[in-house]
């Protein structure tokens, strides 16, 4: 495995079985710090499963995950988050009845004082923390879409899909994670909306230089434009990796995609 030793996120021999189904098969992967890695593959090839195993939603069936030099295999989702990994979900999982601010603040959990005394009695201190975090949340949201910053206390359910995706990414970014996992951020959006969202992501990446991103994406134009390198999965196995242009030429990759369509 080349480069596995100096990766920010490294998986070795990582597997996940659901009963008889092998959703992820001995996956070796290394994500270098500060890169944008595209995770691609046909439907059902195990991309989301990889995210779910890394973030502790599913226990592994075998193998190791290391993050930042530390073994995080089978950590709880909470511990993975505290280690510095935040994510979005393929099917948006925002709380639609809560405000934009509320949703973003959920992602900021580890930076907020959670004591009962602080929250209920020391309301002056609470006010200060609230105001600081309001500023931070609004500034972040404004990077994506300035008008959104004026609507922080409106229910997320009233916003169109593109805004919801932006809010979900803000929720993941507000705690300043080292690694951001994006699961099909363009799902359900038009071509123009997708382009706008990718501009936003590149802009954020420009501002937060230390940020590393893994993005799952079906639209190859997006992958070509924003990723430094790609990993291609098929039936839970890695069949190819490298820069998009090389990967696109690969015969196995072409077969995997053609075989599906």
């Amino acid at each position: 495995m080349t480069g596995a030793a100096d990766g920010l996120l490294v998986s070795r021999d990582l597997s996940k079985r659901f009963g008889g189904l092998i959703a992820m098969d001995s996956l070796d992967m290394a994500v270098r710090p500060q890169e944008i890695l595209g995770l691609i593959g046909p439907n059902g090839s195990g991309k989301t499963t990889f995210f779910n195993v890394v973030t502790g939603i599913y226990p592994t069936s075998g193998g190791v995950v290391e993050f930042d030099g530390k073994d995080i295999t089978n950590f709880s989702p909470q511990a993975v988050y505290r280690a510095g990994i935040a994510r979005t979900f393929q099917r948006s999982r925002l709380s639609l009845s809560l405000s934009v601010f509320d949703n973003v603040m959920v992602g900021n959990h580890m930076r907020l004082d959670q004591g009962l005394w602080f929250n209920l009695v020391a309301r002056k201190d609470f006010k200060r923390q609230f105001e600081e975090n309001f500023e931070r949340a609004r500034d972040l949201v404004k990077v994506f879409d300035p008008p959104l910053g004026n609507r922080m206390f409106e229910a997320v359910g009233t916003f169109p899909m593109i805004d919801r995706r932006r809010i979900e990414i803000c929720r993941a970014l507000i705690s300043r994670p080292k690694l951001l996992l994006l699961d099909e951020p363009s799902a359900g959006m038009t071509h123009d909306e997708t382009k706008a969202l990718m501009d936003d992501i590149l802009e954020i990446k420009g501002r937060l230089e230390d940020l590393t991103i893994i993005i799952i994406e079906h639209e190859m134009g997006v992958i070509e434009r924003i990723t430094d390198t790609c990993v291609v999965l098929n039936f839970g196995q890695k069949i190819c990796e490298g820069p998009y242009r090389e990967v696109a030429e690969d015969r196995l990759v072409q077969e995997a995609y053609l075989g599906i369509q």
Binding site: T55, I57, S76, P77, Q78, V80, Y81, R82, A86, R87, F89, R93, L94, S95, S97, L98, V106, G107, H109, M110, R171, S175
Partner: peptide, 10 residues
């Protein structure tokens, strides 16, 4: 509203 999402944010 969503235990899984909440757990993923600590």
């Amino acid at each position: 509203l969503d235990e899984t999402a909440a757990a993923c944010f600590g």
